[in-house]
Design a protein around this nucleic acid. Structure first.
Length: 798
DNA sequence: CTAGCTGCTGTTTTT
DNA sequence: CAGCAGCTAG
């Protein structure tokens, strides 16, 4: 039977979709239809009955990509995608750990910290242990810990060669122990812990290996070492892994991604088939050629050349501005024109290297009355009022959660100061108990006279106990309502002048919870999955089907001799009666799931689609998207490529890949803009044009001049021998005007571009002295910043 | 305990 | 510039 699914695929796509059951690498260039191949492959496997929907595992990096995949599969096949293992690495790891929490050495209610929680926890520990915070900054330390986990290394496996790193490892060890005590995990822990679960538990491992005959991985170039090993472990010797990726779009090495995984894949997964998808369906010829030439400057590549059947299209527009302000102004003008010609603003993206650059652009757009939307920034579940409400919920789910307790013990304020909290922490540490336990023994929760509104710790303990009682057996959104009311959060924000938005977000949280509970896809995800019962009963024979039956065991100690089989997962030390491990009812389950959801999916930061608004975002966040028109702004040395990336090996190549991503986002029109001067950290900086501009062939470019030229000088950048792009384009700009500045004897102005025989083109960033004493400081970009005495150095206007 | 001040430090980001 | 952390004054 020839499936309709296979219609309109090009030969390479078809080959990829219909590969036999074996591991393969699909090198998928930008715009080559990679998601289509992935989803069609899945649909084809199911339709031809080579696998049933529950027998495959598809992994992505973002929730968005996972959702997209499910949506497209549903559109292709009349199947229920419920229960399918399509998700992010973290989401799937979470799923594994929830199903086998005991074997993984976790409490059933274990919580997932986001990065902010993690940093806070590290900070708390550093403080508690009197570690010098100058030397060990919480952020860096948390970063270090995550990096070790991403590499698959527990403290005992980390090699430390000096005092500093030995201390870091000690902190890492304490951190893990603390997480275990509190019943919390961080993101990397989800994957590492699930890796260890499979590694040391053969029945479970074999269960999943037998189940997932086909494993598909999206954005493989973004995998880190641990994710690579995780896949390898689940795949085992006989399952087929289809890895789809593009080494040229690897832009996340700063968070552990290893492009080398693409090379290693072939060997370690025994993959003999490599298919390259090189036909680009997105961009017109000039844009694609620019991208190809640009990325051709990288040495570390698997090698790939995109082509298109499209026409050349428009030239790439290049604009040089005097300042970031002028650059923004230019964008405004062009966007107005585009809009007038009927291009929807949602189809126009304004990209930049770093978030700080959005400010000027926003300002100009705002003044011009152009609607725009900025991606990035705080997401819904990261807002403080939402995090506070969630912290109360976490206390309901598991009061051992010190982080949650600390967050809300005095918010809204109830007269518990730093000193009482310190005492609490001291007594908790002394007895090796949680803060909650310490608070309980101090507050004397039992002997409380009812209805006496208590302040202080006692009041807090009463509040939480009351909340826990009230939340028993009620619907999720009712729990949240109770929390918001009883905790005093609502009253607090009602009293606050600027509290309206926050109140609205709290209400939004309630509806989010109601929606979450209503979503059968999510709510029934686990129950619908026969694997859980199967895998669970593999371990504990003859257990009845219902998952509600578990509370008997749940109360008890973890039967696993943790020290022997789980050296890295210290036993949950019981704390009987604290109900840390007693998510018994469906409502409790729902709460746990909702909290995990909140951590794993912090919410969209791309607002309401539909509005006709310009799209502003970093190049990183633009990855995977496409637009009719793209403005890539701030193309200056030091900014893009970013100066901080220049020292580390491969840094420039990664920046170039980022530039490649920016260029390949555009379908029809691409603007490249840069500014000679730019406000950065409150100071004006003078930059030279990005090397990446020089790498794009002149013939593809069209230089635009400011229509509102204020008569200032103009700069250029060195184009290797032959014509500079300027020559080909407009009439040459007049040689710079005579110096009209205050100080006689200093022929140069700050901000002017000059050329030096040896150092090339640069921008004057400072000047001093006059006559024979006169010196200028010039930023030559790659060649560095130099002071030059005018009496000796020959400088020309550039 | 909070408000307000000073001083420091600034890539990229998902989970 | 601007957001945050940490400190001091009330």
């Amino acid at each position: 039977m020839q499936s309709r699914l296979l219609e309109n695929l090009n030969p390479e796509q078809l080959a990829a979709v219909t590969l036999p059951r074996e591991s393969a690498m699909i090198l998928a260039g930008a715009g080559s239809g990679k998601t289509r191949v992935l989803t069609t492959r899945i649909a084809w496997l199911i339709e031809t009955r080579q696998v049933n929907p529950l027998g495959l595992l598809a992994v992505t990096f973002t929730n968005k990509a996972a959702r997209e995949m499910l949506t497209r599969i549903s559109a292709m096949l009349p199947i229920n995608t419920r229960g399918m293992w399509v998700g992010t690495f973290h989401g799937l790891a979470n799923r594994l750990l929830r199903a086998h929490y005991r074997d993984a050495g976790l409490p059933q209610t274990f919580q997932i910290m986001d990065t902010a929680d993690q940093v806070a926890l590290v900070k708390r520990m550093l403080k508690a242990n009197g570690v010098n915070e100058e030397q060990f900054k919480p952020r860096d330390t948390a970063w270090f810990i995550s990096a070790q986990k991403d590499a698959g290394l527990r403290p005992s496996a980390v090699e430390a060669f000096d005092d500093h790193s030995r201390q870091l490892v000690d902190i890492y060890r304490m951190y893990d122990a603390q997480c275990q005590r509190e019943g919390v995990t961080d993101f990397a822990e989800l994957i590492l812990r699930s890796y260890e679960l499979l590694a040391k538990n053969e029945p479970i491992r074999e269960h999943y290996r037998a189940r997932f005959a086909h494993i598909l991985v999206d954005e493989f170039q973004d995998t880190n070492r641990l994710q690579f090993d995780w896949l390898k472990l689940i795949a085992g010797p006989s399952n087929a892994v289809m890895a789809v990726g593009d080494d040229d779009q690897s832009v996340y090495s700063f968070r552990g991604a290893k492009v080398a995984n693409m090379r290693d894949f072939e060997r370690e997964f025994n993959a003999h088939t490599i298919i390259k998808l090189e036909q680009n369906y997105r961009s017109q010829g000039n844009i694609l050629e620019a991208a190809n030439v640009l990325i051709g400057h990288n040495r570390q590549r698997l090698g790939k050349n995109l082509w298109t059947s499209e026409a050349q299209g428009e030239p790439i527009r290049l604009f040089e501005a005097q300042s970031d302000f002028e650059e923004a102004q230019f964008v405004v003008e062009e966007v107005r024109e585009l809009r007038a010609t009927g291009v929807p603003l949602t189809e126009v993206a304004l990209l930049y290297r770093s978030n700080a650059q959005s400010r000027v652009l926003e300002h100009a757009l705002f003044s011009a009355g152009l609607p725009y939307r900025v991606y990035g920034g705080l997401r819904f579940f990261e807002r403080q009022e939402v995090k506070h409400a969630l912290a109360y919920l976490r206390m309901v789910a598991n009061p051992e959660d010190d982080a949650a307790l600390l967050r809300v013990i005095n918010f809204p304020t109830r007269g518990i100061g730093a000193r009482s909290i310190e005492q609490l922490q001291d007594s908790a540490r002394a007895s090796g108990a949680s803060l909650w336990q310490a608070a309980c023994s101090r507050g004397g929760s039992k002997a409380s006279a009812p209805d006496t509104p208590k302040k202080g710790i006692e009041g807090f303990v009463l509040l939480i106990e009351r909340l826990r009682a009230e939340c028993t057996g009620v619907a999720l959104h009712e729990m949240i309502e109770a929390v918001i009311e009883r905790s005093g959060l609502r009253a607090h924000y009602e009293a606050e002048r600027e509290g309206a938005d926050r109140l609205a977000n709290l209400d939004e949280l309630v509806s989010a919870a109601a929606q979450f509970a209503d979503d059968p896809m999510r709510a029934l995800e686990l129950e619908a999955d026969p694997a859980f019962r199967a895998a669970e009963s593999g371990r504990e024979q003859a257990r009845p089907q219902g998952r509600e039956q578990e509370q008997g065991q749940a109360q008890g100690q973890d039967p696993a001799p943790a020290s022997a089989t789980q050296p890295l997962a210290p036993p949950v030390d019981g704390a009987p009666g604290t109900a840390a491990d007693a998510a018994e009812t469906p409502a409790d389950q729902m709460l746990i799931q909702f909290l995990a959801h909140a951590s794993l999916e912090a919410g969209d930061n791309q607002a309401n689609a539909g509005d006709d608004a310009l799209q502003l975002m970093t190049v990183h966040s633009a990855k995977g998207l496409e637009f009719h028109t793209v403005f890539a702004s701030g193309l200056e040395e030091g900014l893009f490529p970013h100066e901080n990336s220049l020292d580390d090996a491969g840094g420039v190549e990664e920046e170039r890949r980022l530039m490649y991503v920016a260029v390949t986002r555009a379908r029809r029109r691409l603007y490249l803009t840069f500014a000679q001067s730019r406000m950065l950290h409150g100071q004006t900086r003078y930059n030279v044009a990005s090397r990446f501009l020089r790498e794009i062939p002149v013939k593809l470019l069209k230089r635009l001049s400011p229509t509102y030229d204020r008569g200032g000088g103009s700069t250029t950048f060195a184009q290797p021998a032959g014509a500079s792009w300027r020559a080909g384009a407009q009439a040459p700009v007049s040689v710079r005007p005579a110096p009209k500045q205050e100080m006689a004897g200093m022929p140069w102005r700050i901000g002017q571009s000059v050329r030096h025989a040896k150092f090339g083109t640069g921008v004057i960033i400072d000047a001093e002295g006059r006559g024979t004493e006169a010196r200028v400081q010039v930023n030559f970009g790659r060649e560095g910043v130099k002071w030059l005495a005018l009496a000796y150095a020959k400088l020309d206007a550039a």
